[in-house]
Design a protein around this nucleic acid. Structure first.
Length: 458
RNA sequence: GGAGGGGUGGGUGAGUGGUUAAUACCAACAGACUGUAAAUCUGUCGUCCGAAAGGGCUGCGCAGGUUCGAAUCCUGCCCCCUCCA
């Protein structure tokens, strides 16, 4: 346990991927005491997805666990109803208990990809807040002043700039502070943006006759846009639950200047290696792309496994660097026979179609219906099935792409067409109109959108 | 209770009766380039018809109204902010 641990280890523990420790000296003493510490980590179940930004703190938790300490995961099923004030979205719908529960399950499944389940205790706010009555609320709120709460930077900014600030939002820090009191937290973990809340916890703990928790704040991770902190609302995040290929690709799309911070905050790369990477980048003695691939492998391995990382890399090289087709892609199933039949007899009924495709998935069924109804609209749109070779059908690729959801609108399709962004079996398409398609033909839009047509008659 | 300000496309935010499908920026998408889904450059960015020129439709909190014509004016409603009490 803690007594075996050297000061050198503490140094990394308290410095790498850490912005601030309050109060560092006290935390060091605690760590040396040999006591099993209670590490509090809260989460808001209205937003159950964990991304790499969260992972920075969770990795830190994990490191503490490896020294034998205990994590207390507090499920904010009450604070979820208020909404995290930093989100600035007032109109967050209140979640039903069932939704909260479902979200919590999702969250934990991701949470335990990083944190050791064995050394984690899960507590729900409702354990204590369900019993709260008005006098409890008054007792709690009377301990703080408005000025104190407005000291929080984002409250203050919103107040000053005339943006909405709900009364309940001011309650948020008080409730999370109360959590700390109940779970008897020794150390609270959070991003630097949680600093205010954590400090409130300390104050309240003292007011209620306890010892103030120590606070360990980790830096905010910059998102894929390269400027803002990673967050779901900005859609610049990489989820820990994303498929390997997606995760790998998103990391490759990071601006090059994020390579080092990501290595530092999200991997176990040694300090020496970090220095080496830094040197190589500064002297331009390595193509940043290679380092980024290394980073992507590391991270995908961490959240999936080595093989997945290799496959993702293979995919990346094949599809994006070489611009080949991927081995697997979405499939558009279509009965060629039926297709011909319907195209030839323009008066076929949609109902007939429904019957024909009854065994297909609903979604596909719908899209196929649309495809055919489109052809039925105008005479000139009718295609001559006879003109095509056996084993082929004539299809307007644009229509097909629209139906399949590959392209959003006809307008977009036209624009893409003009730029040569659409290809079929490797040949660029430059105008609308029917094209001979066979079983297994591939439609590609841009670099990333693919569709393989499959004849279900075979 | 009183006085005033405001709600615009995914986001920020211009626009106060026609030249506005709506400035700008961001995001997004595509193309070129590239050993990166980096960077850079170029273009696109409501939707439908059309090869195109062009033409429909929908659209500026919600519902009505005035007008040849409304994001812009009027009425009611909903929501937000500020000050006074």
């Amino acid at each position: 346990m803690a007594n075996k641990v050297t000061t050198v280890k503490f140094d990394t523990l308290l410095n790498r991927a850490v912005t601030e420790v309050i109060v560092e000296q006290e935390l060091v003493e605690m760590l040396h005491s040999g006591r099993r510490l209670r590490l509090k980590q809260g989460f808001d179940p209205s937003c159950p997805d964990i991304h790499l930004g969260h992972a920075v703190g969770l990795r830190k938790l994990r490191q503490f666990q490896e020294l034998g300490h205990q994590v207390i995961l507090v499920v904010g099923d009450w604070t979820a109803q208020i909404g995290d004030p930093s989100g600035e979205s007032l109109t967050r719908p209140m979640l039903s208990p069932a939704e909260v529960k479902a979200n919590a399950t999702t969250y934990m499944q991701q949470f335990f990809k990083v944190v050791d389940r064995e050394k984690t205790e899960v507590r729900w706010q409702s354990e204590w807040f369900d019993k709260f009555n008005l006098s409890d609320v008054i007792r709690l709120t009377s301990k703080f002043t408005v000025a104190q709460l407005l000291a929080r930077e984002d409250f203050n900014r919103r107040y000053k700039t005339g943006r909405p600030l709900a009364l309940t939002e001011l309650l948020y820090p008080l409730l999370t502070a109360y959590d700390s009191v109940i779970v008897e937290a020794d150390v609270e973990f959070g991003g630097i943006d949680q600093k205010f809340n954590c400090l409130m916890s300390r104050e309240l703990q003292v007011m209620m006759g306890g010892t103030p928790e120590q606070v360990l704040l980790v830096p905010l991770l910059i998102g894929t846009d390269g400027t803002h902190k990673m967050s779901k609302s900005l859609d610049n995040y990489i989820g820990v639950d994303e498929p390997p290929k997606e995760m790998y690709g998103k990391i490759m799309s990071l601006p090059d200047n994020l390579i080092l911070p990501y290595f530092e905050l999200l991997t176990d790369t040694t300090e020496a290696e970090l220095e080496e990477f830094k040197h190589k980048i500064n002297t331009e003695s390595i193509n940043p792309m290679l380092l980024k691939k290394h980073l992507a492998r590391e991270i995908v391995t961490q959240f999936h496994h080595t093989q997945a990382a290799q496959e993702a890399e293979g995919y990346f090289i094949k599809v994006f660097q070489k611009r080949d087709l991927p081995e697997e892609m979405p499939i558009f199933p279509l009965s060629f026979t039926t297709y011909r039949h319907l195209v030839e007899s323009s008066h076929s009924q949609i109902e007939t179609l429904q019957e024909l495709f009854n065994n297909e998935e609903t979604h596909q069924l719908l899209t196929q219906k649309k495809l055919f109804s489109h052809f039925h609209k105008g005479e000139e749109k009718r295609l001559s099935a006879k003109a095509s070779e056996p084993g082929q059908i004539l299809v307007d690729v644009i229509d097909l792409s629209l139906v399949a959801g590959l392209i959003k609108s006809r307008g977009e399709a036209k624009r893409l067409l003009k730029k040569g962004a659409i290809e079929v079996n490797g040949n660029k398409i430059t105008e609308t109109g029917p094209i001979a398609i066979e079983d297994g033909s591939v439609i590609r839009v841009g670099k990333r959108r693919f569709l393989r047509l499959v004849n279900i008659d075979n």
